[in-house]
Nucleic acid binder design. Structure first.
Length: 977
RNA sequence: GCGCGAGUGGCGAAAUGGCAGACGCGCCAGGUUUAGGUCCUGGUGCCCUCGGGCGUGCGGGUUCGACUCCCGCCUCGCGCACCA
């Protein structure tokens, strides 16, 4: 099928390795490995070996063929890299090698494997690196990508080279902007039925317009749609879009010069990137209505095969909690709505608390009401003064201070409200332990059932009523009781909860409240809408312009992509990190000619103002998996038949009803951010009919990190780790020396600052790529973090050297295998190894798979001559790990076709049966003897043999036997009295 | 505080109810070469009176038998945290 080329005709490795005294000319050294590896990398490229065929369209396999109809489609992905200027260290390829091993293995098992790698190239580091080097971000980004491609190509990854791209490519940006427009042009219809049986999905805005036009949906002020003018109509529609502009409190980070999403702000109120302070500012920004999908994002976690840890983190972030909204009437007019997860404790609500930002505080009673205690007023003469002072005080506290200090501060507002079940008036306080951004910004406080409310009640001398006790006759505890139990003291003339458990009491009181119009059962979420605009240069521009009404207008598809303009200075305008009053200043605004543009959007040429924000870095990674399916110029975001073939529900035997990428490998650091955003976009695309899969990533695997030792001298300065020598003294203690002085060992991330970087290039140079691959895969389980130890790499090199020597003569380069049949022991070991390695490969336990290959290889080494049949099997088994060496040996063994699609060996069960089995004979659980027995030995016979074994007799002495446990043929346990 | 994960030789690790430490590094001894290194072979948990004894963070339990299952605790790592 492939034409033989000149490179194949004279294999590089038939020429001796360059003469080093004492080293046989055909030894598998780093140098020979390097020549073999580069030869095969070139051959794979020339032949299109890893071209994954699409079932239709322009992409066939290396010979232009379509996939075999019975080949399962297997879509394999890595979290794509960010091409930083620093290049790769040996930790980065860990996941790429692992997915490559999976892909090569699946390919040998007959799957049509789609595996490619793109680059996530917009974003802050590229921009900062460009500013540092004084070059355009595109220039530095492209140089970084080129360097990373070179480093990764040398690893021999079996990627389809036709499917690579960068998120910064104009063709890609076009579709990112196109998806934004889809989101902009959609609204969420809570009532629309879905194929999966649920209700609620995104629909095109045109269908919302149709509802208004027909009168099926009333306008907000009740006027007929036809009476609204164009601007009024847009003001009705625009806020309902899934992508909308709104003036809301956002996270403003002066140190970065941009606003940030909630997900990009740490619990300490600092930016995840750069660790700068973040301030709440009310600014007009783009948001995406991810909250509309909160339920589905939480529920559909059950459909996918992800680590429980990541699913828990997403559930936690979405933060769904079920409870009730309860309305309290405020004395003197108005209502105060609270959210509670414990409506069953309503009879114990003895006061209320609202957040300092709560609108109820905009008007407060003129004087303190009767019954006001001195401790409640904060020493102020009137509620207005007290509230104003507390609001100022609270606003001055940063999130960090709020968190650090859990003591309860607050002040009485002068308002009283009526508890709807008891009819009593309770005081309304304001305190900053209640957050405006959650629920309704107001709570009913139940000091008998909540730790925080109890602490507040204690500080302000408020009454405590317990309405739940562990048991009916329990003593009333000093503190709050938050557990399940029995409800007490909770009855009025119409309803009694007394004697119920918490769950029954909840549903009972919710029905009662709903009947009276005093409350409803509701669900709230911690998840907020996704703040989607950034004030940066190096990102996707919004395909949006504004007219004279300052309302957004989507550019038509024909005007995509909107390219980044040239600007005099693309560095972000940053501020003093603590300067909360500064304002964001988008770099795109520096090009006046670009910002003010004359366009014909259907009603003749008019002047518009462009949106000068850019999209967050996450935009590009929200849909890149779809681009792998067909990265060429195309008419749709993804060809439906390709999406169904590679990602659709049930596209193979394992993907299940969710569909999605079959295996997605990456670090756990994206557990919430990237993975939540991508799921959201995917569901929007699903609702709009662009994809059939419900989830983008069916199986997620988090690989561990490669970390490294670092060494510091007595002054705390780091010294180059590769120059440190280890010294073991006679008492066994270990010291580390650098240039004769003792240094202290630490453990941490690999990086320039710790002077402990080891690069893949170092490894190619010293050992070759195959050895590096085998070492990384044999270090331990893939999901565990592990320390890098360069000196241990030699073990993997010895393994491959022995394998080479088992097939090729080191002195002559001749083939050494013999055509004789393997002996019985070899045959059994070969088949057992095949069987065990298959199991390990399927479970992604590559470290133990390699261990078993080493055992087989060591056995072959012990033979005088290696039988060809055994050599062929081990070469095929080792191929996913050391593909270049395997191809070379495979070819030397006389095969003319690459082994990339050779069938993965299958064990013959006939050879898995042992001739004899070692039976362990225990006395009271301790091993006292061993017997060699036939595998089909009977229980009675084995018992007799065991009881006569010398070790058993010695150990038993004269003790009587109570019982004998026989598990033929492997174990007998004799239990004495 | 809540949730999740981990704890086994000098080191990375293996064994998921049945021989604890596969495989690799390091270390020790020997061989080839000989200047060293590479490479090859063997050994290597601790103690020992060579019978055996002890040993998987600590304490208890279940079992004929526990690294493995159950209960309690300790240490480390990760996530969340005034979310009503």
């Amino acid at each position: 099928m492939h034409t033989q080329d000149s490179t194949t005709a004279s294999p590089v490795a038939t020429s001796p390795t360059s003469g080093t005294p004492g080293i046989p000319p055909f030894r598998y050294t780093a140098e020979l490995a390097g020549r073999i590896e580069q030869r095969w990398q070139d051959l794979w490229d020339e032949r299109g070996t890893f071209h994954a065929p699409n079932p239709s369209g322009s992409l066939g396999d290396g010979a232009g063929e379509r996939p075999a109809p019975d080949a399962p489609a297997y879509f394999l992905m890595d979290m794509f890299p960010y091409p930083s200027g620093a290049g790769l260290h040996v930790g980065h390829p860990l996941g790429y090698i692992a997915t490559d091993v999976v892909g090569r293995h699946r390919r040998m098992c007959g799957d049509n494997v789609l595996h490619a790698l793109g680059y996530d190239a917009f974003g802050l580091p590229a921009e900062q690196y460009a500013v540092q080097t004084g070059q355009h971000p595109r220039t530095t980004t492209e140089a970084n990508i080129a360097n990373m491609r070179r480093q990764l190509r040398r690893l021999g990854l079996a990627h389809d080279p036709r499917r690579t791209f960068a998120t910064t490519d104009t063709d890609y940006v076009r579709w990112t902007q196109w998806i934004f427009l889809q989101v902009f042009d959609s609204w969420y219809d809570e009532a629309a039925p879905r194929a999966d049986g649920g209700t609620g999905r995104a629909r095109p805005v045109s269908e919302l317009l149709a509802q208004y036009e027909s009168g099926a949906r009333p306008t907000p002020d009740g006027r007929p749609w036809s009476e609204l003018d164009e601007v009024e109509r847009r003001r009705v529609i625009d806020p309902q879009r899934l992508a909308y502009v709104s003036e809301t409190p956002v996270n403003w980070c002066p140190g970065l010069g941009t606003v940030l999403a909630n997900e990009e702000v740490t619990a300490e109120g600092r930016s995840e990137r750069g660790n700068f302070p973040v301030f709440k500012r009310s600014l007009r920004q783009w948001n995406m209505r991810i909250t509309a999908y909160a339920d589905r994002l939480a529920d559909d976690l059950d459909l996918i095969d992800w680590p429980e840890k990541v699913r828990a983190m997403q559930r936690n972030w979405i933060g769904r909690s079920e409870g009730a909204q309860v309305v309290f009437t405020v004395l003197g007019g108005g209502e105060l709505e609270v959210f509670t997860t414990r409506p069953d404790t309503l009879f114990g609500a003895t006061f209320m608390v609202v957040a300092p930002e709560h609108p109820l505080l905009d008007e407060v009673p003129a004087a303190w009401p009767d019954g006001t205690r001195d401790t409640w007023t904060g020493g102020h003469a009137s509620p207005a003064a007290a509230v104003a002072a507390y609001r100022t005080e609270a606003a001055a506290r940063t999130a960090v201070e709020r968190q650090a200090d859990t003591s309860k501060t607050g002040v009485f507002t002068g308002h009283l409200a009526t508890n709807p079940v008891t009819g009593t008036a309770v005081p309304v306080f304001t305190a900053d332990y209640v957050l405006m951004g959650y629920g309704t910004g107001a709570i009913m406080a139940v000091p008998g059932g909540d730790e925080r409310d109890h602490a507040f009640a204690r500080t302000f001398e408020l009454p405590v009523v317990h309405t739940v006790l562990p048991a009916p006759d329990s003593e009333v505890p000093d503190g709050p009781y938050t557990g399940d139990g029995v409800v007490v003291a909770s009855a009025n003339d119409e309803v009694s909860l007394d004697g119920m458990d918490v769950a029954t009491a909840k549903s009972t009181i919710i029905s009662w409240l709903e009947g009276r119009g005093a409350g409803t059962g509701t669900v709230t979420y911690r998840l907020r809408d996704w703040l989607f605009s950034r004030q940066r240069y190096w990102g996707e521009p919004f395909p949006i312009v504004y007219d004279e009404h300052d309302l957004p207008i989507a550019l038509p598809e024909s005007m995509l992509p909107v390219d980044l303009p040239e600007v005099p200075d693309y560095s972000p305008r940053t501020f003093e990190p603590e300067d909360a009053d500064s304002n964001p200043e988008p770099p795109l605004g520096r090009n006046e000619e670009w910002v003010h543009v004359t366009l014909d959007l259907g009603d003749g040429p008019r002047t518009y103002r462009r949106d000068t924000n850019t999209m967050p870095n996450w935009a590009g990674s929200c849909w890149y998996y779809l681009n792998y399916l067909d990265p060429s110029r195309r008419e749709t975001v993804v060809e439906p038949s390709l999406e169904q073939y590679w990602m659709g529900p049930e596209h193979n035997a394992t993907v299940g009803a969710s569909g999605g990428v079959d295996l997605y490998v990456g670090g756990v650091e994206h557990a919430v951010l990237h993975l939540l955003y991508a799921r959201f976009w995917h569901k929007v695309l699903h609702d709009l009919g662009h994809v059939t899969s419900v989830e983008p990533f069916h199986r997620l695997f988090n690989q561990g990190y490669v970390q490294a030792y670092a060494y510091a001298d007595s002054r705390g300065q780091y010294v180059p780790a590769d120059e440190v020598e280890e010294q073991t003294s006679e008492d066994g203690s270990v010291t580390y020396l650098w240039q004769g002085q003792e240094v202290r060992r630490e453990y941490g991330k690999m990086g320039k600052s710790l002077k402990n970087v080891v690069t893949p290039d170092d490894m190619y140079e010293a050992y070759g790529a195959d050895t590096f691959r085998v070492y990384e895969m044999s270090m331990g389980p893939l999901d565990l973090s592990r320390p890098w130890e360069t000196r241990a790499v030699v073990g993997s090199q010895r393994f491959l050297q022995r394998l080479w020597r088992n097939v090729v003569d080191e002195d002559t380069g001749d083939l050494t295998v013999v055509d004789a049949d393997p002996d019985a022991a070899t045959l059994r070991l070969v088949h057992r190894t095949v069987d065990e390695v298959r199991t390990e490969m399927d479970a992604m336990r590559f470290n133990t798979a390699i261990a078993k290959l080493i055992v087989l290889n060591n056995h072959l080494t012990s033979l005088d001559r290696v039988p060809r049949a055994a050599a062929e099997v081990i070469v095929l088994l080792v191929a996913p790990f050391a593909p270049h060496l395997a191809e070379e040996l495979w070819e030397r063994l006389g095969n003319t076709e690459s082994l990339v699609r050779a069938p993965y060996p299958v064990a013959d069960p006939a050879y898995l049966v042992q001739e004899t089995v070692t039976c362990v004979v225990q006395v009271q659980g301790k091993v006292r003897d061993r017997l060699e027995v036939p595998p089909d030995i009977g229980e009675d016979e084995l018992r007799e043999l065991a009881l006569a074994a010398p070790g058993v007799l010695r150990s038993l002495a004269d003790r009587e036997i109570r019982t004998v446990v026989v598990r033929a043929p492997k174990l007998v346990n004799v239990v004495p009295v």
